[in-house]
Design a protein around this nucleic acid. Structure first.
Lengths: 108, 108
DNA sequence: ATGAAGTACCTTGACAGGCGAGGTACTCTG
DNA sequence: CAGAGTACCTCGCCTGTCAAGGTACTTCAT
């Protein structure tokens, strides 16, 4: 993985929310999906991931519940809230704008 | 300006280097050019700008010299070094990769 | 049976970058 | 002479990342 975290910083929450819009999920799975989607180029550090969950839940953008799996390790599932959806939509616009702005600043 | 700083974080150094590749410049002017290029949508906070200069100079990516202006406020000019040019080229590639990765993570 | 590897979660403390707030010093214009 | 503009700088807080460490369960090969 060659991506420095500072390039992803500012997208962590957004990326997690994008996954939760697709379906409820849990930490470990989200990270695996991200690794898959990027062909192993990127993955959150666990500490980063779980601190993001805490932040998002406190902000009311996601809620969590324990999975009722009888076997295997317990899983804490997360679901996106309506505010989360709204926040995500807004963050998408920000991203498109940021791309334009950064690209324009990197040219003569 | 709606851009959150975390979206720019990771691009600060890169943006400054891009300006210095175009021509030697100084803090105040760089910020004005950036404001111009983005139609006022973005501008560095001064503290951010000057701490970036310090960081870049310590890293050997830029060098500074005092402008010899007789009138007006003194200006500290910055010039990019060969290492700076190299670092910039590398950071451009990182950026293109980051764009692809982030975009791919924001879709189902 | 035992140990390694995989799944799955969590916390602590350090560190780096952004930036609000404050400051200095000079020039120009009304 | 005051205020706005140019131009630089520092201090200390805040936030997000992450290395390091931990817990607990399951599966599989030895």
């Amino acid at each position: 993985m060659s991506l420095t975290s500072d390039l992803i910083r500012g997208h962590t929450d957004q990326i997690i929310l994008a996954r939760l819009i697709a379906q409820d999920s849990y930490g470990y799975e989200i990270n695996k999906i991200i690794a898959d989607k990027t062909d192993g180029d990127y993955e959150f550090k666990e500490a980063t991931l779980y601190s993001a969950f805490r932040r998002l839940e406190q902000a009311g953008l996601i809620v969590s519940y324990w999975g009722d799996s009888e076997q295997g390790a317990r899983r804490r599932y997360y679901a996106i809230t309506p505010q989360g959806v709204q926040y995500y939509a807004h963050s998408l616009e920000d991203w498109h704008q940021a791309k334009r702005i950064i690209d324009s600043l990197l040219t003569k």
